[in-house]
C-alpha cells in the first residue's frame, strides 16, 4: 500500500521550439495499476509517454524507475545498454500501429520469441512452447504460429504485438492508443484482453488514449492533459463523473453516447 511507485516523474518540461509539449508534469505509477493519459491531439500525451519510457529527453525534470530490487534509477541518466536491457525485458511498448514493433517478414512465433531470445533464451522447444502459450492467451489460433503477420487482420496484429510485449512478463508497459484505428467490435475484444492480462500479470501500465471510454474501462487512475500540462488527475471515475477543470468538463461533455 505505501510501497514506492515503480515509475515517478517530477517536473518534466520539454518544448519543441516555442511550443511547449510538457510543462512541469509529475507522474506516479504503482505496480498493478493502469494510468490513463487522455487529452486531444497535440496535448503532449505521446510526448509524455516517450519521455517516461526514456526515448525522449526532457529539458528539465527527472524520471525515476524502481527495479525489482527496489533500487531507483534515473531513466535519462542510465547507461544506454541498461536502458536497452530494460526496454527489451522489464518494459514493454505497445504502439498504435503494430507494424512499428512487429517484424512483418518474420513468423508470428518468431515475433513472440524475439524478446525471449534477446534476453538469452537458447532452447528452441521452450521458446516455441512459450510462443504457442502466448498466442493462445491473445486468442490467435495455434496453427497460425508459422504464418507471417502480413496475413493477419488489424486486430490480430495488435494482439500479436501484445503477446510479443508481454511474453517477457514486463513490469511496466507503455501503450500508445492500443485500440486506435480498429473496428469497434475488434476494439472491445482487445480492451477485454488488455484488462484481463494486465490484471493477471499485475503489471503497471501507462496508457495514452484520446478515447474517454477506453480510459474509463481500463484506467484505474487518469491524468487529463491540455497544452502540455496535466490539468486534472485522480481516480478515473472521479475525474470523469465529477470533472472539475473546465477542459475536463468540456472533454467529458463532448463524448458521444452510444
Amino acid at each position: 500500500m505505501n510501497d514506492d511507485p515503480i515509475l515517478a516523474a517530477r517536473g518534466l518540461t520539454l518544448s519543441f521550439g516555442v511550443i511547449p509539449a510538457l510543462l512541469n508534469v509529475d507522474v506516479d505509477l504503482w505496480l498493478g495499476e493502469i494510468l490513463a493519459i487522455v487529452g486531444e491531439s497535440g496535448s503532449g500525451k505521446t510526448t509524455l509517454l516517450n519521455v517516461l519510457s526514456g526515448q525522449l529527453r526532457p529539458q528539465s525534470g527527472i524520471v525515476t524507475y524502481r527495479d525489482p530490487e527496489g533500487a531507483a534509477h534515473d531513466v535519462h541518466a542510465m547507461p544506454p545498454p541498461m536502458l536497452r536491457t530494460l526496454q527489451r525485458s522489464d518494459w514493454g511498448f505497445v504502439h498504435q500501429d503494430p507494424r512499428r514493433s512487429l517484424r512483418m517478414n518474420v513468423s508470428a512465433g518468431g515475433n513472440v520469441g524475439e524478446r525471449l531470445m534477446a534476453r538469452g533464451a537458447r532452447h528452441y522447444g521452450d521458446i516455441r512452447a512459450q510462443a504457442l502459450d502466448w498466442l493462445e492467451q491473445v486468442e490467435i489460433d495455434a496453427d497460425r504460429i508459422d504464418d507471417l503477420p502480413r496475413t493477419f487482420s488489424g486486430g490480430m496484429l495488435q494482439r500479436l504485438q501484445i503477446a510479443r510485449t508481454l511474453v517477457t512478463h514486463p513490469r511496466l508497459v507503455f501503450m500508445d492508443e492500443p485500440t486506435g484505428g480498429l473496428d469497434v467490435s475488434v476494439q472491445a475484444r482487445l480492451l477485454d484482453l488488455i484488462r484481463t492480462l494486465v490484471a493477471r500479470l499485475g503489471v503497471a501500465v501507462v496508457l495514452v488514449t484520446h478515447d474517454i471510454a477506453v480510459a474509463r474501462l481500463l484506467g484505474h487512475r487518469i491524468a487529463v492533459m491540455q497544452r502540455g500540462r496535466v490539468v486534472e488527475t485522480g481516480l478515473t471515475d472521479q475525474v470523469l463523473d465529477d470533472p472539475r477543470h473546465p477542459y475536463t468538463q468540456l472533454l467529458v461533455s463532448s463524448v458521444l453516447q452510444a
Binding site: P80, P81, V106, G113, E114, R115, M117
Partner: peptide, 14 residues
C-alpha cells in the same frame, strides 16, 4: 554496441 542479438536468433528460429 548493445550486444542486442535476439534478431539473429530469430533467423535461426525461423
Amino acid at each position: 554496441a548493445l550486444a542486442d542479438y535476439g534478431l539473429m536468433h530469430v533467423k535461426l528460429y525461423e
